[in-house]
Simulated assay, not measured.
Amino acid sequence: MASHPGGRNEYRDMVRSIVDQHGWFVQKVFAGEGSEIWPQFAYTVGLTEMGHPEMLCHGLPLDTAHRLLNVLGEQVRAGTRFPANSAATTLTADNLLLFFIEVTNRSDLAVATMMYGEVEAVQLIWPDKQKRFPWNEGCSIPSDQQPLRGRLPGPRVIE
């Protein structure tokens, strides 16, 4: 979990307040030099309370990931569901195809675990500029920038 000057309980209370006010919180995880943590990523905390898996996004600039996760959170609040093994085309201004896969290793979702215990989560997978995904030949996104944290989907598209 991120270090916080007031300690774990104060951090949990701050997250609880944001979830109560907005419906979810976005936790940013910074990868440090020599860290065994995945590349930097961001994830939601609070979608569990809406009956939806938490969502995470690797490899994008953290502010971009934060905005995208907020868009997804708004969609979930409105009733849209993004289960594992699905895809969506209406979440970005340019209608990029985005995939969602089940996250099988959730050990670093410390804030979500602190709040809810074991949680379900899906990873948002985004394409490179040529609209190729990490599993496509020629994808320009390095595998260590957007590691796949679950099984590859045979997706259905959510319109």
Rank of each mutant, 00 (worst) to 15 (best):
P53I: 07
L96C: 06
S35I: 08
P83H: 11
M55T: 04
R106G: 02
V119F: 08
H4E: 01
R81Y: 07
L72A: 11
V19A: 07
P53F: 11
Y43V: 04
Q40R: 15
T48D: 10
C57Y: 09
K129T: 01
A112R: 06
L109G: 00
A93P: 01
K28I: 06
C139E: 03
S107I: 04
D94P: 06
H58L: 10
H22R: 15
K28P: 02
N105Q: 08
S35C: 09
H66F: 14
A88P: 01
L148D: 00
Q75L: 12
P153Y: 15
I158D: 12
N136L: 03
G51N: 09
W24V: 03
L72I: 15
G46R: 10
L152W: 15
Q145K: 09
P134H: 05
C139G: 04
Q146R: 10
E137K: 11
M1C: 02
Q123C: 06
G79F: 12
N85C: 11
H52M: 12
L68D: 01
R12C: 03
S17C: 11
P39N: 06
Q145W: 14
K131A: 02
Q145I: 10
K28F: 01
V45N: 05
D13M: 15
F25C: 06
V103T: 08
D94A: 09
F100W: 13
G6E: 06
L62S: 03
E137T: 07
N9E: 12
L148F: 05
G7A: 08
S35R: 14
T80A: 09
E10S: 14
L56S: 02
R156K: 14
K129L: 05
K28C: 03
L124R: 09
